[in-house]
């Protein structure tokens, strides 16, 4: 039972990081029908940007205010990079065949990854201990402050995003654009602006995810984006790609699945089982858990 509860805590922590990153994939797919493969590397870049903000701008301060500033500044920087990425890599290809856009996304992914390597170097960088190492013992289960912070902040962000999408006019515009871009345009929605907005939201959520990875795991490498990107992508598909609550659910489920496989079977098998799960979902329910059944367009 102790193992179960401990893995539950671990799984929810990793799951909320996956969910934050998965939201970026799913929102872009929902509106543009494009898998933004560069998103994982944007997450990695965010961790490095956060590190630089910490050392260069905040002067290595670790107060609560400084930590909030690091999150805000990193999110702003990444949002700008996200918008630029969309302008340069995706907008020129919007009417091109789907494959061209995917290749462009892969190219952007490699470019960001190598860009990180050139700026910050190929060796592992150490993220500062911004959240104090505080632990609570609940019986034999240990919960750390950082786990609580990650889980709570992720939930707050996800609820805020859900309300934004469902209750505001901009949210309605995003939903409309994801159903039919041409019709949305005819209704007077500026689709370009909607797309820029989803890149801003996706990139800043990814930035928070990247900072969480740095805070939780401490060591960050230039090529770690691929691994987290892949997991988040799987999470988005499990939940139903294009569906926002689906990405949140998928992320959490994947985190828990991973933790339990690693805890009860073997951590070396966790990846293999993750992809077996992906294949099973694609075979049994290709649109994901919360994805709507869409009629094939012939």
């Amino acid at each position: 039972m102790d193992i179960f509860l401990q893995q539950l805590a671990n799984g929810l922590t990793i799951g909320s990081m996956f969910a934050l990153v998965a939201l970026g994939y799913t929102m872009v797919y929902g509106v543009m029908r494009l898998i933004n493969f560069a998103h994982g590397d944007m997450v990695a870049a965010a961790a490095f940007v956060g590190l630089t903000v910490y050392t260069q701008i905040m002067g290595e301060a670790t107060s609560l205010g400084a930590v909030i500033m690091i999150f805000l500044l990193t999110a702003i920087v990444m949002a700008c990079i996200g918008v630029v990425l969309e302008r340069l890599a995706y907008r020129p290809l919007r009417t091109a065949p789907r494959l061209s856009a995917v290749v462009s996304a892969l190219g952007a992914s490699l470019m960001i990854q190598n860009g990180i390597m050139l700026v910050w170097g190929p060796q592992m960088r150490i993220f500062p201990e911004l959240v104090p190492q505080v632990y609570w013992n609940l019986g034999n289960v240990v919960i750390s402050l950082i786990q609580v912070v990650i889980l709570l902040l992720s939930l707050v962000l996800m609820v805020a995003l859900y309300l934004f999408i469902e209750k505001t006019r901009m949210g309605a515009a995003i939903r409309a654009s994801s159903i039919d871009q041409d019709a949305a345009r005819l209704m007077g929605i500026n689709v370009n602006r909607v797309i820029a907005l989803i890149f801003i939201i996706g990139s800043s959520l990814g930035a928070v995810g990247g900072l969480f990875i740095g805070l939780y795991y401490r060591g960050i490498t230039f090529n770690m984006g691929w691994q987290y990107g892949l997991y988040a992508f799987v999470a988005a598909i499990i939940g139903g790609i294009g569906n926002i609550p689906g990405a949140m659910l998928g992320g959490m489920l994947l985190g828990l699945f991973n933790a339990f496989i690693a805890g009860y079977i073997s951590s070396t098998w966790a990846d293999a089982f993750t992809f077996i799960l992906l294949i099973a979902i694609l075979v049994i329910r290709p649109t994901g858990i919360l994805g709507e059944r869409v009629a094939e367009k012939v």
Binding site: I3, Q7, N10, N258, A262, G263, S267
Partner: peptide
């Protein structure tokens, strides 16, 4: 490089 060793360590803890 898998970064997350808590699953293995949780097993070890028992």
């Amino acid at each position: 490089d898998s970064q997350n060793f808590t699953p293995v360590l949780t097993g070890i803890k028992s």
